[in-house]
Amino acid sequence: MTTATRAEICAVACAELFRGDGEIVAAAVAGFVPMLGSRLARATFEPDLLTTDGGPVLSAEPVPLGRSATGIEGWLPFRDHLWLVLNGRRHVVMGPVQIDPFGNTNISCIGDWERPKRQLLGVRGGPGNTLLNTTSYWVPKHSTRVFTEKVDFVSGIGHDRGAHEIRAVVTNLAVLDFATPTRRMRLRSVHPGVSVSDVVGNTGFDLDVPADVPETRLPTPDELQVMREVLDPKALREREVPS
């Protein structure tokens, strides 16, 4: 095995989000990397996880990225996703356009909501997901445009507004969490090759930085093999995080 790429380190960091989750639905809708991460978790250390093929089926086995499930163990149309939000057995990974120090996020619009400068998707399921489900975030390009002191519209709520649990934020540079007394965002680890000042410089608010910041763990040889040969042989992960 050659050295792990940044995308592979990110995918393993996304897999780690699901550690300990057990028999719940992993709804990793934010992109290839978290989708790969959720399926990798299921294929390795979190075998009870339920995953989809990106459509309304629960696959019998973790499915390679971009492929449809061949074995199917369940049906999950949109309406059942929305019930499941209230039921709670779900961990969602979303992609924020803006995120603030407490984990409030915006995917609705930039500027004033009444007449936005840039209209985005709309809130989607953000309000319900964050209030009721464990939520994590994936940011493929860590920058001061994304990590902002304030978000223009709160579509996903943070810890200061009653979020159920914002578990962590995985980016192309680092892993961040909220394990501080005030539940403000903290730098948990930097990816190999990234410095603490890279992360701080690309974050638009004061980040809690511990004295010792560890490196994000490397994929194991087994994880690399599963990603490269089984779950993502077309290397879609590399498109999302260029090395």
Binding site: F78, L82, V85, L86, S108, C109, W113, E114, R115, P116, K117, R118, Q119, L120, L121, G122, V123, R124, G125, G126, P127, G128
Partner: peptide, 23 residues
């Protein structure tokens, strides 16, 4: 993103009632 919807919002051409998917 849907270009026509974006333009309509950015031009102030439409009113919006924005709900969560589950709501």
């Amino acid at each position: 993103l849907e270009p026509h919807f974006r333009q309509a919002r950015q031009n102030g051409d439409i009113q919006l009632t924005e709900y969560d998917e589950g709501m």
